[in-house]
């Protein structure tokens, strides 16, 4: 079985995918607002369609001590925490526009054990161009399960 997904490039060679229907909107040069005392990987918000949307900085998640990057491109994502649940929204910072990819079940693979930060936010993974790529678990990322717990390593 094959599925269409969006390949997200966060910069520094860090990639992941989200489902075809989960990517809603690309925002170039987004105006972001800082929320004091929020976790560093999710310390900014976007005001999008009258909603306050939390923005996930993947590079900060993977390397908590890295310098904050300027946000030049952002993808708004939508997800549901379960069947018939209300849609919820988040955003992720990107280094370049997403690319459409086709993922087959036969590409399934394990994330290397030294990539625990990915493992905490990926529902599964697949092999893409000989590299394991995580499939983001958006409900988990934005649920608060990761709040205040920056990844120790990647």
């Amino acid at each position: 079985m094959e599925s269409i997904a969006w390949l997200l490039n966060f910069g520094n060679g860090q990639l992941a995918v989200v489902g075809r229907r989960e990517l809603l909107h690309l925002v170039p040069q987004p105006a972001l607002f800082e929320v004091p005392r929020a976790p560093r990987h999710c310390s900014r918000v976007l005001i999008w369609q009258d909603r306050i949307v939390p923005v996930w900085d993947m590079l900060a998640w993977l390397a908590p001590n890295s310098r904050a990057v300027n946000a030049s491109l952002l993808a708004v994502v939508g997800y549901q925490s379960g069947p018939r649940q209300v849609p919820r929204f988040g955003a992720v910072l990107l280094a370049e526009p997403p690319a459409r990819v086709v993922v087959a079940d036969t590409q399934a693979c394990e994330l290397p054990q030294d990539q625990s930060a990915w493992g905490r936010i990926a529902s599964s993974s697949f092999c893409h161009e000989e590299k394991p790529i995580g499939i983001l678990d958006l409900p988990l990322m934005f649920s608060g399960a990761c709040a205040g717990k920056p990844a120790a390593n990647n």
Binding site: A38, S43, V45, D50, R51, G90, G144, A147, G148
Partner: peptide, 29 residues
Amino acid sequence: IVFQELPPAMATPGSPIRRLATYQGALAC
């Protein structure tokens, strides 16, 4: 002013911020 719950991913223990809001097109805590 329009209020919204603090996104769960942004909540940290002990933070004095209870909710977020938009006011004049900008964010308020």
